[in-house]
Design a binder for these strands. Structure first.
Lengths: 218, 218, 218, 218
DNA sequence: TATGAATGAGGCTTCATTCAT
DNA sequence: AATGAATGAAGCCTCATTCAT
């Protein structure tokens, strides 16, 4: 254990350092996706990376840090891909559809990453994982919430609790990798389109009579 | 280890035996809900039940069997409660709403159970857990799928892939316990109503112009 | 735990007491023979006897005591059967043959007992087992030794070390149950006759030139 | 646990690895010989080797594998020594004598090994031990059987069942380590000679009158 | 006498992490 | 930077034995 005080007091991580960390993060992702969180031990991750287990501890002070980086890596990569894809959508409804479809296609194209992320989501006993995960999820939820709210202000969406809808959409999105893992032959385009349509309908302004069974709303 | 070959040849477990098993299942649920699956060791579960760890092995031949019973206990109890609540719904739309609201309220009233179930859902490395879980989940999905399909045949729902919608609803439902755990002060009635409304809208027959189906792309 | 001070200070073990002890000894024999010494736990023995595990501790102060009784039971029974069979043999050679054949036939007729005894012979880590076993074996060896020596004095046998021959015969006899277990279809009569013949030849006085490669003898 | 997938992909175990494995095998032998199979736990073996118990699992994936190696080690070493000694024997009778004497002397020179092997022979509940042991024992028996049969064809031995004689000799040989353990002061040369003589006489062709074969009885 | 639930020690194994090289 | 042997804690499970009933 030395990092943090980078190799020979350079503050910039050496190239090899960065490369190793990436390699290890990727090995961790592949391992978790394949054998599950519980069996993703240092030894197994190291085997896949074709290095020794000790080296993981050299580059990451703790297993929690490695897993944290796994989450960061996956979410960062995903965010980048998603924004690229969802860029030029005009209008809130189109943006929502674009986002959903982009996500589904991303899942289809990055199954191991998404499976690993899923595993980690439910195994947040490690404090560092939990923290990073909470941040990530809260960020994601907030963005959705904000999008819904703005859409409502622009009268593109009907009245509903942005938070509730955000949580619901999040849940529906998290079901995607699982379903793709369970039924790999799923028609991805169709799935994406159906999912987007469902939420489009769920948020669309109502024809005339605004339904309002329930009053208390936050 | 003694049971499995139940005491002598009585097939009826003694009263105390049944009580202990229940107690242990409940202790396991509470422990998993509180500290997470990975840290729910026999020692911790036994501590909560105020018995010695060895006693768990006495009543359950394997950790997998205990966890299996946990799942059975939770899903059985939930199914009973849900059917009781969703009884008198007339029509597919009403039934859908009733089911969703019943689920949300059930989650609110049984937070530890639902959290534990959630944990187990994603930690299925144990074969017995995996088996029981697969059964449960596939049953749940199938029921939803069937409900959607029948609703479509009755023209109560628009045309969509029953499987996709089932998976989506399942995902949205699984998000409920998480949200309730994250924000315990959530207005449950409102949440239930909003969620039901969202899916009601998502499945409702379209006014006239049937929305563009899905153009194969890629 | 009470025995030793027999039930209600009678010094004679009650009838039921004796019956239970016998039953338990027999259950222990059958269990050891079937699943092996290492897996012959109280629970398994009790299962076979259709009683509760606690009852074993009630009748035998310790597992060692039970095993000791197992040995006593087996060897006693065997000795009785053997002497009955080997009675009217006239002459040392005939007596040797009778003894060997009787033993082989006894093994064939009491396979579980002999297997259990064999198991115990090699698992003498328990002090009580070890003691009883040592006594039994030393007794057996001494008897053989004495028989050989007397036969030599009567010029019925050639000169050899009685101890060595006794040990050798003992070893050959112990191989019998193992072979019968391994090849249950073995022709027992043939085996008995062959074995007896081998030792008959090994001890017979030599024609004329007594071979004597080695001098030091004790 | 790490090996099994040997370090990276080197198929050659490192020097230190091999040394440790040898050391552990030897510690296991000594421990079994001293306290018996049942009490030869990892903790005790590790104590003798002055390492931590976990390290045994690091070098041997399972206790069964360690014990298997113990058997392999002992039998290999013994076979080597025996063949070296029994080389230049001319004729079947001489070969038999040489083999028996070589065995006795080997036992005398390697008491712990032979005691350990004896212990393992009768405690074959572990599947890996059982497999290795069955192979070893069946091999040994077959070799003896073959030797006897060829000797009979060459008229060097009288007519008898090769299998029975092989089993008998095996039993007599297995008694050797036990006797040496029980009476360490035994005159080994004398024991070896006596044992060899006994079997020499048991297999020798009969003068003229072929002894009565075996009359079916029962 | 008998039951069988309960305990507590001990067994094997896995693992993150350390450290000499 | 890297290795991989080594440790120590923790996990699950089995068992002889005890004890309230």
């Amino acid at each position: 254990m030395q990092p943090k005080i980078r190799s020979r007091n350079k503050s910039t991580p050496s190239f090899i350092e960065a490369a190793r960390r990436d390699q290890l993060v990727e090995a961790a992702i592949a391992t978790i996706a394949e054998v599950g969180y519980a069996k993703a031990s240092f030894v197994r991750i190291a085997e896949r990376a074709a290095i020794s287990p000790g080296l993981i501890s050299y580059h990451f002070s703790t297993k929690g840090e490695l897993l944290e980086q796994v989450i960061v890596h996956i979410t960062t990569t995903m965010d980048r891909a998603m924004s690229a894809r969802a860029e030029g959508a005009s209008g809130y409804v189109a943006a929502l559809r674009a986002m959903i479809e982009a996500f589904v296609h991303y899942c289809a194209g990055h199954r191991p990453e998404m499976l690993a992320l899923l595993q980690l989501s439910s195994n947040a006993e490690d404090p560092e994982v939990a923290k990073e995960l909470a941040r990530t999820q809260e960020t994601g939820l907030s963005e959705l919430e904000e999008m819904f709210q703005k859409g409502q202000e622009a009268r593109a969406f009907r009245a509903f609790s942005p938070r509730t809808m955000a949580v619901t959409l999040m849940g529906a999105l998290e079901a995607v990798p699982r379903e793709l893992a369970l039924r790999p032959e799923t028609d991805v385009d169709a799935y994406a389109c159906e999912l987007a349509t469902a939420f489009e309908l769920a948020v669309q302004p109502l024809p005339h009579a605004p339904r309002a069974k329930h009053k208390k709303r936050r």
